[in-house]
Computed example of a mutant assay.
Amino acid sequence: MKVLIVLLATFGIGLIVTKLTGDYNVNLSARIAMAVMMAFTALGHFKFTQGMAMMLPSFIPYKKQVIYITGVIEIAAAVGLLIPAMCTLTAWCLIVFFIVLTPANIHAAMKHLDMEKATFDGPGPAYLWFRIPLQLLFIGWVYWCCLL
């Protein structure tokens, strides 16, 4: 829920700021919002490393390193969204990234993982009713603001 609030609040602020400086720039506001959200989620990779590592299935080695690498990828994506010449490539990479992350989110939900506490007393599969549509929103958002 936090990431959705960050995305929508930043988008709204972006619309207000672009209106105050001229005409609404919906596309720029959308790219900035997704970049801020990606930077926000990247912070979680460094703050909640243990819990995020628990999201990964047992057959994946070097779990903490994978979490750190994906955090760096999210920071790079945030930057890429803000560079017009990189936006298309970044968007396609993010779409693949969001799709690749989906099994880890499903795995975490099935295990009732609470990522922030690194415990197995989280909301469980019911969380997927929010998370899967959220992943689809992220994919659609990136597609809309960078590929259309």
Rank of each mutant, 00 (worst) to 15 (best):
N105K: 02
A76H: 03
I73A: 13
A78F: 08
C87Y: 07
V96M: 13
A77L: 14
V96I: 13
Y62G: 12
C87S: 14
W92A: 05
M86H: 07
K111L: 05
L94Q: 09
L56K: 10
L113H: 00
S58N: 11
S58K: 12
V96G: 12
H112Y: 12
M86R: 03
K63Y: 04
C87G: 10
L56C: 02
P84Q: 12
K64I: 07
F59T: 13
I75L: 15
E116N: 13
M115T: 08
I95Q: 13
E74W: 05
L89M: 11
M115C: 07
P61F: 10
I99Y: 11
M55Q: 11
T88Q: 13
I106W: 08
H107K: 06
M86E: 07
T88W: 14
A104Y: 05
G80L: 12
F98A: 02
E74G: 04
D114P: 01
K111N: 09
L81D: 09
F59K: 15
I99D: 05
V66I: 12
A91S: 09
P84Y: 03
I73Y: 11
E116D: 05
A108Y: 01
M54S: 09
I60W: 13
I73S: 08
I60P: 14
C87W: 04
I95M: 10
T102Y: 00
L94C: 12
V100M: 15
L82P: 14
E116V: 02
A76N: 02
L81Q: 06
I60G: 15
T90F: 11
W92R: 10
L81Y: 14
C93R: 00
A77P: 10
D114T: 00
L56Y: 15
I69P: 02
V72L: 10
S58C: 07
I83D: 03
T70P: 01
L113M: 01
W92Q: 04
K64F: 04
A77V: 09
P61W: 04
L82V: 09
T102F: 02
P84L: 05
P57A: 01
P84A: 05
T102D: 02
A108W: 03
A91M: 04
M55V: 06
A109E: 06
G80Q: 05
L81K: 05
L56D: 11
M115Q: 04
P57K: 15
P61L: 09
G71R: 06
A104L: 06
F98W: 12
F98H: 02
N105Q: 10
A104Q: 07
Y62D: 13
T70C: 15
Y62N: 10
I99R: 03
W92D: 04
A85E: 13
A78K: 04
I95V: 10
V100G: 15
E116S: 14
A78T: 10
I69H: 04
I67L: 09
V72I: 15
T88M: 13
I83E: 05
A78C: 05
A104D: 01
A109H: 00
K63V: 04
Q65F: 03
D114W: 01
I83T: 03
V100Y: 11
I99F: 11
A77G: 12
L101W: 10
Y68H: 09
M110F: 10
P103M: 11
A109R: 02
E116A: 11
T102R: 00
V72M: 15
E116C: 01
M110L: 09
A76M: 12
A91N: 15
V79F: 07
